[in-house]
Amino acid sequence: MVDLTDARWRKSTRSGGNGGECVEVADNLPGIVAVRDSKDPHGPALAFPASAWATFVGTIRR
């Protein structure tokens, strides 16, 4: 299990502006990127290896 105690969450630049589709990302932790639903900040979060996240984001941008 990944410790997200020190995660600094920010709203994703790809989140919608209407308040309904808000994804938060924490990319300040060594080697991982965590993602969660901003409407449920105490709910579950997904953690990815930073390299896998970079590949995902790069693919989406193309």
Rank of each mutant, 00 (worst) to 15 (best):
1 M>E: 15
2 V>Q: 15
2 V>S: 11
3 D>G: 09
3 D>R: 11
4 L>C: 09
5 T>R: 13
5 T>G: 01
6 D>N: 12
6 D>R: 10
6 D>M: 03
8 R>Y: 00
9 W>F: 04
9 W>I: 05
10 R>Y: 06
10 R>F: 03
10 R>T: 09
10 R>A: 13
10 R>N: 03
11 K>Y: 00
12 S>A: 14
13 T>G: 15
13 T>Y: 02
18 N>K: 11
18 N>R: 13
19 G>P: 12
20 G>P: 04
21 E>W: 13
21 E>S: 15
22 C>E: 07
22 C>G: 11
24 E>R: 09
24 E>K: 11
24 E>M: 10
24 E>H: 14
25 V>G: 04
26 A>Y: 10
26 A>R: 08
27 D>M: 08
27 D>W: 03
28 N>E: 07
30 P>T: 04
30 P>C: 05
31 G>V: 02
31 G>R: 04
31 G>D: 07
31 G>T: 05
34 A>Q: 02
35 V>M: 08
35 V>L: 08
36 R>I: 08
37 D>N: 07
38 S>I: 02
38 S>M: 04
38 S>N: 10
39 K>H: 15
41 P>G: 06
42 H>K: 12
43 G>P: 02
44 P>D: 09
44 P>K: 00
47 A>M: 07
47 A>G: 03
47 A>K: 02
48 F>M: 05
49 P>M: 00
51 S>Q: 10
52 A>H: 09
52 A>I: 01
52 A>Y: 00
52 A>T: 12
53 W>N: 04
54 A>C: 01
55 T>H: 09
56 F>T: 07
57 V>L: 07
58 G>I: 03
58 G>L: 05
59 T>R: 11
61 R>T: 14
